[in-house]
Each structure stands twice: as C-alpha cells, then as structure tokens.
Design a protein around this nucleic acid. Structure first.
Lengths: 120, 120
DNA sequence: GGAGATGCATAAGGGATTTATATAAGTCTG
DNA sequence: CAGACTTATATAAATCCCTTATGCATCTCC
C-alpha cells in the first residue's frame, strides 16, 4: 500500500467523506493520481464511491468498515511501536518528552501551514 | 534528486567511503537500485568510485568536494527552515523543546536500531 | 440556451525501485 | 591447486506511483 493511500485513508477517517479533488489537494498529488488511488482502494474494499445528488459531476469517497478498521489497526501498530521505544527511555527523558508535547504539536501545525504556502 | 540519493550522500558524509552493498543496506533499498543511484550521482559529480585494492570485486564510493558541499548546503537549509518555525513558538515551548532534545536524540537512536532488526 | 468553468476519467510517459540473472573475483575443500 | 561455492557488482525487464495532456459530462451565469 502506497504512502499516499495510507494518508488518504487517514484523512477520510479524520474528516469524513470527501470528493476526489479535495483528497488530491489534501495529499499533495494531482487529481488523476487520486482518481487511480481511489479506484485501487475501492477494488481493495477499503473505500466506497457515492454520487453527490446535488452535483452529478462529483463522486464522494467514504471509508468502508474494512477501511476504517485498517486505519485503526495501522494507527495502533504505530502507537504500540513507539510505546515500546519510549518504555526503554529513562524516566526523566519520558517526562521531558511529555512536557514537550504541546510544543511538538504546535510545531507540526506551523509546518503544515508552511507546506501549504510552498505547495501552491 | 531522490530522497534515497540525499540520504545516501548524508550517510557517506557521516561515515566516510562505503561499498555499494553497504549503502544499499543502510538506505533500505536493493543493491541494483544503489548501483544505479551511484552511477547517477557520479555523473552529477557528487561521488566518486574507487576500487578496493584488496578486493577487486568491490567499488568504494566516496563523496567529492561538490557532494560534501551539497550535503552541507542542504542540511543548513533544513536547519534554517526549522529555526524559522521555532522562532514562532512561545518561549516556554522553545524551552520545553530544548529540554526534550536528549530524549528525542535517544529515541531516534532506539528507532534506528529497531529498524535494523526489522529489515533483516 | 450557449459559453465558460468545474469535476472526474483516461492515456501516455517518466522516474525510482523491484526481481531475476550475468559476470567477475574471492574463498575454501579435498 | 583445481574445481565448487560464495560474494560484489552490473544489467535487463517489469512494476509502481506519479506527472502532464486531454476528453467528456455537468454545472453556472449572463
């Protein structure tokens, strides 16, 4: 599964159904790339396409139950892997990490904004 | 320049000349991929191949001056970009980040060891 | 109601990587 | 010390994921 596919599933999980164009912009790929990705993920049973009744041009993409469970499994695996690593750190370092969490979150947010500016 | 190329240059900068197979393992790609990468970087003037006199099968890859300067420039650009972001954080968050640096370094080291184990 | 804008799909091409295989050099064994 | 394995790299073909270019259907607006 490509990195972009995984990121797209995560985005769908976070924000609910999206149109193809929105997903492409969110993941920083072109619309044709996202069209193909969605087809592949649909064939894998991870997402479904549903037409938008108010605009027959758009196809809304939403997670299937299998897709949602895939996202959860993958996220949990990541969390577990990091938890195992953090368990090996001395206690004072764990505390320092915890204390830095707001700063790290803030930094990630600044970075994503900077990336938006650069991409367009 | 591909991500793997940049990582390979950084590895060469950190650890000195390496053989193709070592570089491939270090970057997590196959040997033929690294062979091609090295040829491209050689044509770009960033690395040089030198035979190992004690084993005529191996080709040692080392950074040229241009390659080393490329690595330094790129690294500095990254440092600058992060510095700009960190400048926007409130002072207490900067302090928290600084306090967490040893933990982050330690975590990165644990992670790279874990990755070694998983890849083989 | 027709012109332009918008959303998606398809086609063709390129870059980076993979597997499979070839070639050459080293190592070891009887 | 000769042949059989092993190791280091190279080459070839195929694959994956992405791009640009383009087509088609639908919407919007005067």
């Amino acid at each position: 599964m490509s990195l972009t596919s995984a990121a797209t599933l995560a985005t769908l999980d976070k924000t609910g159904p999206r149109r193809i164009t929105e997903l492409a912009a969110a993941e920083g790929v072109t619309q044709p790339a996202m069209t193909v990705l969605v087809r592949v993920m649909e064939e894998a049973g991870l997402v479904e396409r549903t037409g938008d009744p108010s605009d027959k041009r758009v196809t809304l993409v939403c997670l299937t139950e299998a897709g949602a469970s895939y996202v959860r499994t993958r996220r949990q695996a990541g969390v577990d892997a990091y938890a195992r690593l953090i368990d090996e750190l001395p206690g004072d370092e764990v505390e320092a990490l915890a204390a830095a969490l707001p700063a790290l979150r803030h930094l990630a947010e600044l970075e994503s904004h900077a990336r938006e500016g650069a991409d367009r």
